[in-house]
């Protein structure tokens, strides 16, 4: 579904990605794990065209997207829940969700999807007319995921959904991630520092270090890998 071929992305003169190649197949949950500053978020931003790779190619269902504008990439069905959630703080919960469906014109479908996300996260229904910035961290994460779902994504990119949340909330969020993948066959690309958690929900995983992919294997194998255990699982 998504093919990334040897992309290199720079911030000014600093090279953040030093040639990343990875593949995501339809219906998979793929995780990308790695330490802070390894280039995980940059990889996601490169897919969405916010950070432009200077070299390399990205294909989504065969279409080259590495030179497309962000709104066109989003229109193809790639949605990101960015690091730090980035809720529009002064828009209400409802307006945040409407912004998620910004490119859609099917009023009826939007309404159905609204009911669907309120089903997934009933707390959002209670807070619908509250400003997004007044929600708690966990609620903001729920809103961020819901906002992305409102676009009916084919590929959902999640950047550190567990960051700064209480263990119970994290568990809830990861249950939902599995559910989204299982029920609506949405392909998920999950970037996480919490490797243990990520590898337990993912089918396959990639390990990233200093702008390079250093390992790729099935999630089970990575969980059992001695190096991964030492470096990322704290065992």
């Amino acid at each position: 579904m998504l093919k990334i071929r040897n992309i290199r992305t720079y911030y000014g003169n600093i090279q953040a990605l030093k040639g990343i190649t990875l593949d995501i197949a339809e219906g998979e949950i793929i995780t990308l794990i790695g330490a802070n500053g390894a280039g995980k978020s940059t990889t996601l931003m490169s897919i969405c065209g916010v950070a432009r790779p200077r070299y390399g190619e990205i294909f989504f269902r065969g279409t080259p997207i590495h030179e497309m504008s962000t709104e066109k990439i989003v229109a193809l069905g790639i949605c990101q829940v960015p690091e730090g959630r980035r809720i529009f703080p002064n828009l209400t919960v409802m307006e945040n969700l409407e912004m998620g469906a910004f490119l859609r014109r099917d009023g009826h479908g939007i309404k159905n999807d609204l009911d669907h996300v309120f089903d997934l996260f009933p707390i959002l229904a209670q807070r619908r007319s509250q400003a997004g910035g007044t929600l708690s961290g966990g609620e903001q994460q729920m809103l961020a995921i819901s906002r992305a779902l409102m676009a009916r994504p084919k590929l959902l990119l999640l950047d550190e959904p567990s960051l700064g949340l209480a263990p119970l909330i994290i568990q809830q969020i990861f249950e939902i991630i599995k559910k989204i993948n299982a029920e609506s066959k949405t392909t998920i690309f999950l970037v996480e520092q919490n490797a243990n958690l990520a590898l337990k929900v993912a089918h396959r995983g990639y390990v990233m270090e200093n702008g390079l992919i250093t390992m790729s294997d099935s999630a089970i194998n990575l969980l059992g890998n001695e190096e991964v255990k030492k470096a990322y699982l704290g065992l």
Binding site: V50, T70, V74, C79, F88, N90, L91
Partner: peptide, 14 residues
């Protein structure tokens, strides 16, 4: 309003 509050995020919703 969305662009004024967070331009990158506005781009990410299209």
């Amino acid at each position: 309003r969305a662009t004024a509050q967070d331009r990158t995020m506005a781009m990410l919703v299209g």
